[in-house]
């Protein structure tokens, strides 16, 4: 498997991982999982650090993914404290829903900037060290909305669909350096993001989910843990739906 350069494939129990938006919701569940799997984990936050950072040994770094300098600073701090991230999970994201006819260009652009360009900023800056180390795992958190579209979420769906093209291009650009890049497309997951929906909207979603319920953040995290593992070494450029069957249609 080694290409004769610095062999990066020796089994290493723990890698350095960075999870953006790892202070709550899905990101926090991912950080906990990666930590339990033996990785040294840093999470980014804007608002508040996670309450149980100590219990999971999470290094907390401040970062706003809409600001390239903030991303650079967060990577530098992580590298200083833990080493250069070898696993990066681009999870930070937000919604600003509205029907297209009433969606301002500002609302469209802000969501693209945070979700898509923000992930690009993080991946671009982090991949350099992975290329040097000849080992890397990048996981983008997309959404079922990015695959099937969603009324009221044109901006969000576009940003999440964009992540797929971004990931697959990176997967091809860096495959020769043993860096894999994959996408997870969660369905409806019980976090603050979902809490923003009203009961009717929620019922409407759940009624379309073959498994008949909302997912848990940890069920997304389990998939991330796999894609970030040594065992996933032959998996790159995939979009893994973790959605109770929602995207089967």
């Amino acid at each position: 498997m080694s290409d004769g350069r610095d062999g990066g494939d020796a089994p290493t129990p723990g890698r350095v991982a960075l999870v953006t938006g790892g202070n709550r919701g899905i990101g926090l569940a991912i950080a906990r999982r990666l930590s339990r799997a033996g990785h040294r984990v840093a999470v980014t936050y804007r608002s508040e650090r996670p309450a149980d950072a100590e219990a999971y040994n999470l290094t907390c770094v401040r970062c706003d993914v809409t600001d390239p300098e903030s991303v650079a600073a967060a990577l530098a701090t992580t590298t200083e404290r833990l080493g250069a991230p070898e696993i990066v999970v681009c999870n930070a994201g937000l919604t600003r829903d509205g029907l297209v006819l009433r969606m301002s260009e500002e609302d469209f652009g802000a969501v693209i900037d945070a979700n898509l360009t923000g992930s690009f900023r993080v991946a671009k800056q982090a991949v350099r060290a992975m290329v040097r180390g000849r080992w890397g795992r990048i996981v983008f958190i997309s959404s079922v909305s990015g695959i099937g579209g969603q009324p009221g979420q044109a901006n969000y769906s576009a940003s999440k669909a964009g992540l797929i093209g971004l990931a697959r291009s990176l997967a091809k650009e860096f495959a020769s350096r043993n860096v894999t890049v994959n996408v997870i497309a969660p369905g409806a997951v019980g976090t603050d993001m979902l809490a923003a929906l009203n009961e009717d909207q929620l019922d409407a979603i759940v009624s379309r989910v073959p498994l008949g319920r909302v997912g848990e953040a940890d069920e997304i995290a389990a998939a991330v843990e796999f894609l970030a593992s040594e065992d996933a070494s032959y998996v790159t450029g995939i979009v893994l739906a973790v959605d109770g069957g929602l995207s089967m249609g």
Binding site: R128, V131, F174, S176, R177
Partner: peptide
């Protein structure tokens, strides 16, 4: 050297 090698070298 492929194109990525050259980019790495330049960096």
């Amino acid at each position: 050297a492929d194109s990525l090698d050259i980019v790495e070298l330049v960096m």
